[in-house]
């Protein structure tokens, strides 16, 4: 049988999915082992156990100076910034996206401006943000918003434009006002796409968050990584990277689950990834 027609069983699929992860860990462990044979004090590829130990320390042992549990403090601060920024971006995407997508005059007024604005590399605005808003939370959240909102607004506006014209006309013949069409037709049709857009925007949002924290912050996952970099503390950095990845993964899955639960109609036609 041709390979394109062979389908893995459930167990095989799971095993195949796990394989690259296992290979990565094994490769790392082997490399780390040989490096430490040469130099037991090697800092570059610490052993899995020493990383676990460092991670455990960050999570359970209060910091000597501040008395905080650093992992949880960093995670809370970072997630708060990320959550606030993405909430603002989502609200902007909904309000501006629907206005631009649904009302031709607003589209003519704002679409070219938005297209231009979204091309500014957000990181180049960071110094401006630090100068204007200071080094506090506002500048970091503003960077996340500026980095993600324009793309989210554009994709929401596109989702509005993609609503079949037939449905909008049908709503008109049922006597709907513009506002009623927004609340009963456009909003529900667009929300699943907004969640997809939110999931995709979380990737750059994390980049902006970590960058802002690395440059000017006193807490947060990005701050911690760049802080311990000075001591070549790979045993902290690597677990933190895994931890950030895990948080990002869980957020993504939670949003997908939300979409499937709340917008069952949208996922009836089969769904990918």
């Amino acid at each position: 049988m041709r390979i394109i027609n062979r389908k893995p069983s459930r167990v095989t699929a799971l095993a195949l999915g796990l394989l690259p992860f296992v290979l990565t860990v094994v490769t790392y462990a082997v490399a780390s082992h040989y490096r430490r044979l040469d130099n037991p004090a090697d800092k570059l590829l610490p052993s899995l156990s020493s990383m676990a130990e460092a991670f455990w320390r960050m999570a359970t042992v209060p910091d000597r100076r501040s008395g905080d549990l650093l992992l949880w403090l960093d995670s809370f601060d970072s997630l708060w910034r990320l959550g606030t920024g993405m909430a603002v971006s989502t609200l902007l995407a909904l309000s501006f996206g629907i206005a631009i997508g649904f009302i031709p005059h607003v589209r003519s007024a704002l679409a070219p401006y938005l297209a231009t604005f979204s091309l500014i590399p957000p990181i180049t605005i960071l110094p401006i943000l630090f100068i204007t808003f200071g080094l506090g939370e506002l500048a970091k959240i503003a960077l996340i918003v500026i980095g993600t909102a324009p793309v989210m607004i554009r994709s929401t506006a596109q989702a509005v434009l993609d609503i079949p014209r037939e449905m909008i006309i049908k709503a008109e013949t049922l006597g709907a006002s513009v506002w009623q069409m927004v609340t009963r037709l456009v909003l529900p049709q667009v929300l699943p796409h907004l969640i997809t857009s939110l999931r995709l925007s979380l990737v750059p949002a994390w980049i902006f968050l970590i960058s802002a924290e690395a440059i000017a912050s006193t807490s947060g996952l990005g701050y911690r990584i760049f802080l311990v970099r000075r001591y070549l503390a790979m045993d902290v950095i690597l677990p933190y990277v895994v931890w950030i990845t895990l948080l990002a993964f869980l957020l993504d899955r939670a949003l997908l689950l939300l979409s499937r639960r709340a917008f069952r109609w949208h996922h009836l036609g089969g769904d990918a990834l």
Partner: peptide
């Protein structure tokens, strides 16, 4: 306007509403 009803070949009904919800939508408006 509501004095002229329309049925298209596709996309005539609202995919995010159930059958019953589709039918009461005009009343709700």
């Amino acid at each position: 306007t509501p004095d002229r009803g329309i049925v298209f070949q596709k996309y005539s009904v609202f995919s995010h509403l159930t059958v019953a919800e589709n039918l009461i939508l005009a009343q709700e408006f």
